[in-house]
Nucleic acid binder design. Sequence first.
DNA 1: AAGATCAGGTTGATGTGTCAACTCCAAATT
DNA 2: AATTTGGAGTTGACACATCAACCTGATCTT
Lengths: 166, 166
Amino acid sequence: MVDVGKGPWLDDDEQKAWRSYLLMRKTLETHMERHLQREFGLSGSDFEILVNLSEAETGRMRAFELGQATQWEKSRMSHHLTRMEKRGLVRRESCDARYPEVAITDEGRAAIEACAPEHAARIRKFFVDVFGPERLTALGEASAEVVDTIRKHESSDCPPEVRGHC
Amino acid sequence: MVDVGKGPWLDDDEQKAWRSYLLMRKTLETHMERHLQREFGLSGSDFEILVNLSEAETGRMRAFELGQATQWEKSRMSHHLTRMEKRGLVRRESCDARYPEVAITDEGRAAIEACAPEHAARIRKFFVDVFGPERLTALGEASAEVVDTIRKHESSDCPPEVRGHC
DNA sequence: AAGATCAGGTTGATGTGTCAACTCCAAATT
DNA sequence: AATTTGGAGTTGACACATCAACCTGATCTT
């Protein structure tokens, strides 16, 4: 197809593992999101926000903290919070003028408590149990290493004026 | 936070591994897509289509085959092909009336050949090399098992009239 | 103290994904 | 032969994500 030198190319086993990973990625995400959506009317994004808020002792966080937790762009956060607010899952409270806090509503808490058990059960059934303890631990460690490697790379060679994005 | 019986809940190590995986998922995807977009003006979706077409000996496939390969919904496929066609990366050819084939254009081939080496190098650097051979193999196998498990589940308990989506 | 800088947040335009409704033609029914 | 059924593909409306521009108030300059 394309000429394969000793260059950057992946060999067959590596390709196979990578593509297998990509397929799992998509299959698992699609499955989990479809379930949340169909059974509980929540998108994966909704769920992510609600999990974070419900785990905060006060039930409230600054948008910025939510951004750190989810790794979303700030504009995505703002837009999504607006939509969730419209649906009554969340409430913006401007106790401090320009850095409003986001609070989970009763309705939001009800929604996440309703879906959390089934969601966890699915993670267990289709992911945790299939991997088994050893492979799961290995994956967790390797994942953290991948994240570290990418972060190191981005903070070192990303020109300062572009850094705002990262 | 929420009461933890012996139920479906994940224990701390399992949670940690799952969240670590989720973070890698997002970090890696964001990194790879940003690179493709900034350096070559291609989205991850564009890339996926072009890879598949360029690997077909004839450089052409039916939309349906592309759908199998990418696991996209048919409407997403149609919309995306329209956009790519507008940009000259791809061409619809209706040799058979109602099942048009999709062909990669010279421009499309040039685009993917330009970015493929760097893309592969990134996969190697941030994923393959970080995992190392053993963990990579284990991940590939486990991924396939996860996909099998989900497919088995969906084909068995999905009521026939809804099956169209799957 | 007046102005520059900066970070958190919002907004609007645009690109992308999803769902449901529709078209089209072939093969199966009758 | 006329009708139905069914799968591949398209379309339009809507939800969501991204990007760049902007607003706002605090802190740094001088």
